[in-house]
Nucleic acid binder design. Structure first.
Length: 367
DNA sequence: TGGAATGATTTCAC
DNA sequence: GTGAAATCATTCCA
């Protein structure tokens, strides 16, 4: 074959009659004797190519050599290049314009929102803000947790960018390698710049699918990190013993109506020093909600506890009255009211009869 | 380490 | 909006 690379170049020539792919330069002088000669030559060459597969290996080899040395070979090569360009590439070209992958767009948006991709802004400030909001204000230990969160997010970001760089580098290297290979191959077969371009885009698509996996994994890592640090349930801390005592004291001293008012909840929250993850009144509400339902479900189990707190309350009350002052427990708007009685009655329905009798007598003593 | 205890959330009814 | 009930998820403890 010819030693010169035969990279195809785009032609705008009109195809030869009967051979739509044949370029203009192949048709020059078709009216003269020289033109007739060329036509004859090309006809011969085409005939030889068509029959080459029917020949033996040696014959075909000899024929190939003869064709390579033929004076019309470069012209024929160009014709083949044009035919290829006009048929194969034009068909495939229509498929190349693909819309952006929605999945990839989602991943990109998420990584951007989380501060993993895009400009660094303190490592997921939006997420950190969300964390602060979720915890009901930033306490000292919250900020410590947030800095831990930011540090881990920063690690993810660093790994992501390192891997991304690696992929891009590998992609560039591979693209260059393939381009060189194609240039090399263009010496022996028709390859157009368009074809190389298409090959490059295929490589890029392959690498972008790998990148998508990287983005997917990064998103998953961020999600896990978020749930680990930002899920409020994970922030649950048991109340300390003192707080539990205060709440229990209130609960059992208002057993007839264990529904503290908003003010009482606030006061209880203050007394229990409920801050941080346990958000003030809400935590108190949760505590009372849980306590009521669990007490109601299993009064027997809580009986001993109830007796103990009732005794303690009685002692406190006696002390208070002897000192001429009121009991130091948060007020309740309608304690021992109708609602309270109803609540206790409904609770009594759930316990065995003997317990009911005991509770009733206990209730009557309290009132 | 498994089960109990417990704080928080969700769903539903009022 | 509040409370009941169910459920989840974490913490505690034998």
């Amino acid at each position: 074959m010819d030693e010169q690379p035969r990279l195809m170049h785009s032609h705008t020539g009109v195809g030869m009659a009967g051979h739509p792919g044949l370029p203009q330069h192949m048709q020059e002088g078709t009216g003269g004797t020289d033109g007739d000669g060329r036509k004859q030559d090309i006809g011969d060459i085409l005939q030889q190519i068509m029959t080459i597969t029917d020949q033996s290996l040696d014959e075909a080899q000899a024929r190939k050599h003869a064709l390579n040395c033929h004076r019309m070979k470069p012209a024929l090569f160009n014709v083949l290049c044009e035919i290829k360009e006009k048929t194969v590439l034009s068909i495939r070209g229509a498929q190349e314009e693909e819309p952006p992958d929605p999945q990839l767009m989602r991943l990109d948006n998420m990584l951007l929102a989380e501060g993993v991709s895009g400009p660094e802004k303190g490592g997921g400030s939006a997420a950190a803000a969300a964390a602060a909001a979720a915890s009901g204000g930033a306490g000292a230990d919250n900020s410590a947790e947030h800095s831990d969160y930011r540090a881990k997010l920063s690690q993810i970001r660093q790994i992501y960018h390192t891997e991304l760089e690696k992929y891009e580098q590998a992609c560039n290297e591979f693209t260059t390698h393939v381009m060189n290979l194609l240039r090399e191959q263009s010496r022996t077969r028709p390859i157009s710049p368009k074809e190389i371009e298409r090959m490059v885009s295929i490589i890029h698509r392959k690498f972008s699918s790998i990148q998508m996996q990287l983005k997917q994994s990064t998103c998953e890592a961020v999600m896990i990190l978020r749930s680990r640090f930002l899920d409020a349930r994970r922030k649950r801390r048991n109340f300390n013993k003192q707080a539990t005592e205060i709440l229990n004291e209130y609960f059992y001293s208002h057993l007839s109506n264990p529904y503290p008012s908003e003010e009482a909840k606030e006061e209880l929250a203050k007394k229990c020093a409920i801050t941080v993850a346990q958000v003030h009144r809400r935590s108190v509400s949760n505590w009372f909600g849980n306590k009521r339902i669990r007490y109601k479900k299993n009064i027997g189990k809580f009986q001993e506890e109830a007796n103990m707190y009732a005794a303690r309350t009685a002692v406190n009350a006696a002390n208070a009255s002897s000192h001429g002052s009121q009991a130091n427990s948060p007020s309740t708007p309608n304690s021992a009211g109708e609602t309270g009685s109803l609540w206790l009655c409904s609770a009594i329905k759930l316990v065995p009869p003997l317990f009911s009798i005991f509770l009733l007598s206990f209730y009557l003593r309290l009132n």
